[in-house]
Amino acid sequence: MPVTLLNPDGIMKPDVYRQVAIATGTRQVHIAGQVAYDAEGQLVARGDLAGQVAQAYRNVAIALAAAGATFDDVVRLTFYVVDWKREAMPDFIAGIEQAARELRISPAPASLIGVSALYEPGVLVEIEATAIVG
Score class of each variant (00 low, 15 high):
residue 1 M to A: 13
residue 2 P to H: 00
residue 4 T to R: 13
residue 6 L to R: 15
residue 7 N to H: 00
residue 8 P to F: 03
residue 8 P to G: 04
residue 9 D to E: 10
residue 11 I to R: 07
residue 12 M to L: 14
residue 13 K to S: 11
residue 15 D to N: 12
residue 16 V to H: 13
residue 17 Y to H: 09
residue 21 A to M: 09
residue 21 A to V: 07
residue 22 I to T: 14
residue 22 I to E: 11
residue 23 A to N: 10
residue 25 G to R: 09
residue 27 R to K: 15
residue 32 A to R: 09
residue 32 A to W: 07
residue 33 G to T: 08
residue 33 G to V: 11
residue 34 Q to Y: 01
residue 35 V to K: 06
residue 35 V to F: 06
residue 36 A to P: 05
residue 37 Y to A: 05
residue 38 D to H: 02
residue 39 A to L: 14
residue 41 G to A: 14
residue 42 Q to W: 02
residue 47 G to S: 03
residue 49 L to Q: 08
residue 50 A to V: 13
residue 50 A to K: 12
residue 52 Q to G: 14
residue 52 Q to C: 14
residue 53 V to D: 07
residue 53 V to P: 14
residue 53 V to R: 05
residue 55 Q to A: 10
residue 56 A to R: 01
residue 56 A to G: 07
residue 58 R to L: 06
residue 58 R to W: 02
residue 59 N to T: 06
residue 59 N to D: 05
residue 60 V to G: 03
residue 60 V to F: 04
residue 62 I to Q: 15
residue 67 A to T: 06
residue 67 A to D: 08
residue 68 G to R: 07
residue 69 A to K: 01
residue 71 F to S: 01
residue 71 F to Y: 15
residue 73 D to L: 04
residue 74 V to Q: 02
residue 75 V to S: 01
residue 76 R to N: 14
residue 76 R to V: 10
residue 76 R to K: 11
residue 76 R to P: 01
residue 77 L to H: 09
residue 78 T to P: 02
residue 78 T to G: 06
residue 78 T to Y: 02
residue 81 V to I: 15
residue 82 V to D: 00
residue 83 D to P: 04
residue 83 D to K: 12
residue 84 W to N: 13
residue 85 K to M: 06
residue 87 E to R: 06
residue 90 P to H: 03
residue 92 F to M: 10
residue 94 A to V: 09
residue 95 G to H: 03
residue 97 E to T: 08
residue 97 E to N: 14
residue 97 E to L: 15
residue 99 A to E: 07
residue 99 A to K: 11
residue 100 A to V: 00
residue 104 R to L: 03
residue 105 I to K: 08
residue 105 I to G: 08
residue 105 I to Q: 12
residue 105 I to M: 15
residue 107 P to E: 12
residue 108 A to E: 09
residue 108 A to C: 11
residue 110 A to Q: 10
residue 110 A to E: 01
residue 111 S to D: 13
residue 111 S to P: 01
residue 112 L to C: 10
residue 113 I to H: 10
residue 113 I to Q: 13
residue 113 I to S: 12
residue 115 V to Y: 00
residue 115 V to L: 00
residue 116 S to N: 05
residue 117 A to E: 15
residue 117 A to V: 09
residue 119 Y to M: 12
residue 119 Y to D: 15
residue 119 Y to Q: 15
residue 120 E to F: 14
residue 120 E to D: 12
residue 123 V to I: 15
residue 123 V to F: 01
residue 126 E to C: 10
residue 126 E to T: 04
residue 126 E to W: 03
residue 127 I to C: 03
residue 128 E to A: 14
residue 128 E to R: 09
residue 131 A to G: 11
residue 131 A to T: 09
residue 132 I to W: 04
residue 133 V to R: 11
residue 134 G to I: 02
